[in-house]
């Protein structure tokens, strides 16, 4: 039996004013709606009945939120609806933020990147082996919190409503790179907007995943100039295409005007409920190798992993340090490893 998606209305507002109007109306009517950009993450969830919605709102008519601009201060302003393929291929992004272009090219597959958006990747739903399943499978295990059930199969002692209530893991490839780049998100609400630094956007929970409020829409991602920061991203995945990161590691080295390293930065995805990141100063006499060792130790100690992926938890954890050191080698800092 093939699964079909039924039981919801479909709206496709043409332009930002229409979107604002629609969201206001849906809010007033208290209807449960879901926003869809590329839909590559959403459609399987709808088909698997992981989320129920009364109205599916396609954002694909909102042209204002697609495209890449360069502000006078060197900030890249990227519409949330910009396709990942466009981010990966944009000469502007490649020149200004090559690490962002590179990481965009690591998401999914060419077909997925032609459809999926940068905003969608930052908002990609957390995944868990007990959630991303069919209704039959979830019946067998008893539905968990994330699908309106009464239990967490990963942490049996978890309590609904008390964060972290859900250990579904964070799987965005682009988030760790954008974190190191100090990206800001422009969130639209009503007729206004607010800016939230990406580092304050995510929450430690697989269900209440971020600070986006009901009715709020991610409009733009602002990426300030890299300021001497060079970033390498690599992901642990058994295949070189399609897979979400079992672990993703962004490593950054910031250099001053003279090319001297001043900061080491590490961000992780694929482990735990939200991305983690750390910065370590390289000035003041500390040997870089010692800082790297400290960074790896910190990262390995801080993350929470569970047996919920192709790779065993210990292996994924063990790979953090390996990936940090390999990233540094690709950045020409092999001497620190």
């Amino acid at each position: 039996m093939t699964t079909r998606m039924t039981g919801f209305d479909f709206e496709r507002p043409a332009g930002l004013p229409a979107l604002r109007g629609l969201l206001a109306r849906l809010g007033k009517e208290q209807r449960r709606f879901t926003l869809a950009a590329g839909g590559t993450d959403l459609m399987p969830q709808l088909k698997q009945q992981q989320l129920a919605t009364e109205v599916l709102v396609s954002l694909n008519g909102v042209g204002e939120l697609a495209g890449i601009e360069l502000a006078s201060d060197g900030t890249l302003r990227i519409g949330a609806l910009t396709r990942l393929a466009e981010v990966a291929e944009s000469p502007l992004v490649r020149e200004r933020q090559p690490a962002l272009a590179a990481v965009a090219a690591r998401v999914g597959s060419p077909q997925i990147r032609n459809r999926a958006t940068l905003g969608g990747n930052l908002l990609v739903n957390n995944r868990c082996v007990y959630v991303n399943q069919s209704p039959l499978n979830r019946t067998v295990h008893a539905p968990c919190f994330k699908v309106d059930g009464d239990v967490c199969h990963i942490v049996k002692s978890a309590v609904r409503g008390k964060l972290p209530q859900c250990q579904a893991r964070f799987v965005s490839d682009t988030a760790p790179v954008l974190l190191l780049l100090d990206a800001r998100l422009v969130l639209l609400r009503g007729r206004g907007e607010r800016r939230v630094p990406l580092r304050r956007f995510y929450r430690n929970d697989g269900m209440e995943r971020n600070v986006l409020k009901p009715g709020e829409v991610l409009g733009w991602i602002e990426v300030p100039p890299a300021g001497g920061l060079r970033i390498d991203y690599d992901k642990l995945a058994v295949r070189n295409a399609l897979d979400f990161p079992s672990l993703g590691v962004a490593v950054g080295v910031r250099e001053d005007e003279r090319g001297e390293p001043v900061e080491l930065a590490v961000a992780l995805t694929g482990l735990g409920t939200h991305p983690l990141h750390w910065r370590f100063a390289l000035v003041g006499g500390a040997a870089p190798a010692a800082v790297v060792a400290q960074a790896c130790a910190r990262a390995e100690k801080s993350v929470t992993t569970y047996q919920q992926d192709f790779f065993p938890r210990d292996y994924r954890k063990k790979m953090i340090g390996t990936f940090v050191r390999r990233g540094l080698r690709r950045l020409g800092r092999g001497a620190w490893t």
């Binding site: 399987p44 597959s109 082996v129 991303n132 399943q133 069919s134 499978n137 067998v140 295990h141 058994v238 295949r239 070189n240 295409a241 399609l242 897979d243 192709f310």
Partner: peptide, 21 residues
């Protein structure tokens, strides 16, 4: 399998090599 149920009944989670491999 987990308790007798197939846990990776999809082509995302059942890993068939891609053309890259």
């Amino acid at each position: 399998h987990y308790d007798g149920v197939v846990q990776n009944a999809s082509f995302l989670e059942y890993k068939i090599p891609s053309a890259f491999e």
